[in-house]
């Protein structure tokens, strides 16, 4: 069986990373920004799994790390969503450009 190779996985994760970074910099909607951050985290997790599978199969570290990344990312997005809801109650919208009451 011929599956995808290591370099294909790496290119895919690099693309995910770039999309995430691009989204973080250009999107103005808070939930879209949160999704972009999740893309970056998943790119890193995918890297770990790919390296573990193709290069370092004997070392469990690379397989365990993504589990922690996923758990922590879930905690982080839960908190971010809670704060977004709190902010939405004040503003009734989710545009970061409007979150500007703290300035100089």
């Amino acid at each position: 069986m011929i599956g995808p190779t290591l370099s294909q996985y790496l290119v895919f994760s690099a693309l995910l990373f770039c999309f995430g970074l691009y989204g973080m910099l250009t999107r103005r909607n808070l939930i879209a920004m949160l999704m972009s951050v999740e893309l970056i985290l998943n790119a890193a997790a995918l890297n770990f799994v790919a390296f573990h599978h193709f290069l370092y199969e004997g070392d469990v570290g690379g397989a365990v790390f993504p589990v922690f990344i996923i758990a922590v990312a879930a905690a982080e997005s839960a908190i971010a969503l809670a704060i977004i809801i709190a902010l939405f109650r004040h503003k009734n919208q989710l545009d970061v450009q409007d979150a500007d009451s703290l300035k100089n």
Binding site: F17, G20, M24, L30, M33, L34, V37, I40, L41, A43, A44, A45, N47, F48, F51, G61, G62, F65, I69, V72, A73, E76, S77, I79, A80, I83, I84, A86, L87, A99, S101, L102
Partner: peptide, 25 residues
């Protein structure tokens, strides 16, 4: 508002850190 700024930036920084660490791994 302070909270949302902090959570987005800290998540982004963790993302950058992790991606760098995954390449080092």
């Amino acid at each position: 508002e302070a909270g949302i700024k902090y959570v987005l930036f800290s998540a982004l920084s963790s993302g950058l850190l992790l991606y760098g660490l995954s390449i080092i791994y």
